[in-house]
Nucleic acid binder design. Structure first.
Length: 104
DNA sequence: TTCGTGACGTGCA
DNA sequence: GTGCACGCCACGA
């Protein structure tokens, strides 16, 4: 035991618990996974996820309520599309955390 | 072990 | 609202 992958595991579990139609920030997810202020690590971890994954990585946005991708990029459009499909609304390229932020 | 990097966050001008 | 500096954590060379 004593696996050092627990951080990633905890992160993946926290990620998997995010309900559809809701979003959480990188910092929030880090805290939920028990990683403290490791928002940057969350981004790095999600980056390593395969494109074809069952995990709702698209429900993770930054504290400003926006996507952490260059506007117009393929990745940006991909994430936005997935969120819109879940009824998450965009107000001028940004999400209203008051309405869509998930608080467990 | 030390150094640089990153899909980040918060405070302040 | 926008931009910048600094802080945080984990990771790989």
């Amino acid at each position: 035991m004593l696996s050092m992958d627990n951080k990633k595991d905890a992160l993946m579990q926290a990620l998997y618990s995010i309900p559809p139609g809701r979003v959480v920030t990188y910092g929030q997810l880090a805290k939920l996974a028990g990683l403290g202020q490791a928002a940057r690590y969350v981004g790095t971890a999600l980056k390593n996820l395969p494109r074809e994954t069952n995990l709702p990585w698209h429900r993770v946005i930054n504290a400003k309520g926006k996507l952490s991708f260059a506007p117009g990029s393929e990745a940006y459009k991909r994430q936005k599309n997935l969120l819109v499909q879940e009824k998450v609304e965009f107000e001028n390229e940004k999400i209203n955390l008051r309405k869509f932020n998930w608080e467990p």
